[in-house]
């Protein structure tokens, strides 16, 4: 379950985050939605400074290098045609083609990796408010009632990703959170769309 509070400015949103944390929610439960990037920690802390998508870029690059080399050298080797006293598998041309493929696949890898890491494109309908595009800040809180199975990041203890308020029921948590947001000056609060 998730709720989204929409705030007119950064200050009120910040206050809301402070309030929520004070209420016993953890940083992991709170995230900010904005059309302008704010440095990490200003609103919500993602706590994840290490991204992994660039490894995919590297992987793509390595794959591309292999593909490029195979294409340039392999095809020439399969059907050897002598041209101008150049070797069948010529160093520089192969290097150039390998290089281009490396870069191409690395770039594709980077973008695909980025999207994967962002979990985009998402087919699920998620909480959102178009006002965010106009400069409003959304503060999203995921509510986990006690006993709900929570998947945390590897190496993170469940207490760190679920705050002490999790012992309360979902409705109660939601009520507390809405209270905090209203105190911070929320414009409106959107609850999770019930299926």
């Amino acid at each position: 379950m998730e709720i989204l509070g929409v705030f007119a400015d950064v200050e009120s949103a910040g206050r809301a985050v402070d309030g929520l944390l004070g209420e016993g929610f953890t940083e992991a439960q709170v995230t900010s939605l904005s059309s302008v990037p704010y440095p990490d920690g200003v609103l919500a802390k993602t706590g994840r400074h290490n991204t992994w998508f660039h490894w995919l870029a590297l992987l793509g690059g390595i794959g591309g290098a292999c593909a490029g080399f195979l294409l340039a050298a392999g095809t020439a080797w399969v059907y050897p045609v002598q041209t101008g006293d150049k070797p069948i598998i010529a160093l520089y041309p192969t290097a150039i083609v390998t290089y281009e493929f490396t870069m191409l696949f690395a770039m594709i890898g980077a973008i695909v990796g980025m999207l994967l890491e962002m979990k985009l494109p998402s087919l699920k309908k998620r909480l959102y408010d178009p006002a965010i595009a106009e400069g409003c800040i959304g503060i999203s809180l995921s509510i986990h009632p006690g006993g709900e199975a929570v998947i945390c990041e590897a190496g993170v203890r469940p207490e760190e990703c679920i705050g002490p308020v999790s012992s309360l029921s979902a409705a109660e948590q939601k009520e507390r959170a809405e209270e905090v947001m209203r105190a911070a000056g929320v414009l409106r609060i959107i609850g999770e769309v019930q299926p």
Binding site: Q82, T83, G84, D85, K86, A90
Partner: peptide, 8 residues
């Protein structure tokens, strides 16, 4: 030419 510029 044995090292023909036209070929490669």
């Amino acid at each position: 030419c044995h090292d023909a510029p036209c070929e490669p």
